[in-house]
């Protein structure tokens, strides 16, 4: 238990540090790299939570494919340093307000519901493995899964149509 706690604390420190680095770095490439670090740390959290399939998918899809495309775009468009002052003050106030609401929700969930152990029920050792995820996905959640894939397909076709020459 204590070893798990120490690992969790180190990982949490890295994850929060990477997230802050993402927010405060003025160079877009560094910001993207901090986000990659954050994604990989979250993948290690999934491993700690006995969900290896999710961890590997997180690294492959988010840290690998999506962030490489981000970097690709940043490198193609050039990396001008961002200005230190933003003009949209109302956006900043709104973001802070929403952030506080989210934090409040999380704290409430953890301290009120988490005490009774209702957030996570008893999970078997096979939880999060490829078999159990496949069975859940294709039996119980088949319709949402298919709708998601159609949404992605439509988005893809939309991107192709929008960028096509006449």
């Amino acid at each position: 238990m204590t070893a798990d706690l120490i690992i969790f604390l180190i990982l949490a420190l890295v994850a929060v540090g990477a997230a802050l680095g993402l927010l405060f770095s003025r160079n877009a490439v560094y910001a993207a790299l901090f986000l990659v670090l954050n994604f990989i740390t979250v993948a290690v959290f999934y491993l700690l939570l006995n969900a290896p399939f999710l961890a590997m998918a997180q690294v492959t899809i988010y840290a690998g494919a999506i962030m490489i495309l981000f970097l690709f775009v940043i490198m193609l468009l050039g990396t001008k340093k961002l200005k230190t002052r933003g003009e949209n003050h109302w956006q900043r106030r709104l973001a802070i307000g929403l952030g506080v609401v989210l934090l409040g929700e999380l704290v409430t969930l953890f301290f009120i519901k988490g005490q009774r152990g209702t957030l996570l029920g008893d999970i078997g050792s096979k939880f999060g493995g490829p078999e159990s995820i496949g069975i859940e996905l294709f039996n119980q959640y088949l319709l949402p899964f298919e709708i998601t894939s159609i949404l992605l397909l439509v988005a893809m076709i939309g991107a192709i149509v929008l960028t096509k020459d006449n």
Partner: peptide
């Protein structure tokens, strides 16, 4: 011997490109 060994290879292969991208940039 992890039950997602093949996915592990995919994950490592997908982050291998960062070194090349960053070297170029």
């Amino acid at each position: 011997d992890i039950n997602v060994g093949v996915l592990y290879i995919m994950a490592v292969a997908s982050i291998a490109v960062y070194g090349i991208v960053l070297a170029g940039w």
